[in-house]
Amino acid sequence: MALSMINTALIIPTGNEIKSGVVLDIDSPEVMRVLLQKFPKCRITRIPPVADDQDQLIQAAEEWADSGVDLIVFIGGSGGGHRYSSTLSEDYTHSALESWLDNKCSYKIFGKNGHLWCNLICGTKNRSLVINLPGPYKEARAAIKAFVNTLEENPDLKALNNAMKDAVVSQYPV
């Protein structure tokens, strides 16, 4: 596969609030829309939401990476979450990716309060390209758009990661 061509993609929504239906998953349809806009022939699978659990997150993606899916997109669980507020969910997607991916680069976006607001990772597992997106809709939309736009010009992991970081930071009113 040329890295700039996505023929198959897997979307993995994460989070207990999504899994239980307390919150509607509006990110996955938007990610699908953006991917189809750029890659109309792409076959996209959205699997059921995965709980905030490191082992379950990796397990959900492992089989797909083994089968050679072109792109795996994790949504949510990218921040500090429960580590700052006991009422927030447990954000484990980024730590799962850090331990699972073969090659990776990341941008950790901290707030001026020293809290981790978002850890964006681009990497590979076997032949699959793997990225994560923040859960808030506008940030997820900005990041996936930046990803597909950059993929065509420069499918380098670092360039993709940098473009996604800029897109997410631009959503904070600084």
Binding site: N103, K104, C105, S106, Y107, K108, I109, F110, G111, K112, W117, L157, K158, K165, V169, Y172, P173, V174
Partner: peptide, 12 residues
């Protein structure tokens, strides 16, 4: 390859 950087968002 492994590369990690961090940025600070100065938002109130």
């Amino acid at each position: 390859m492994e590369n990690s950087e961090r940025v600070i968002a100065f938002a109130d």
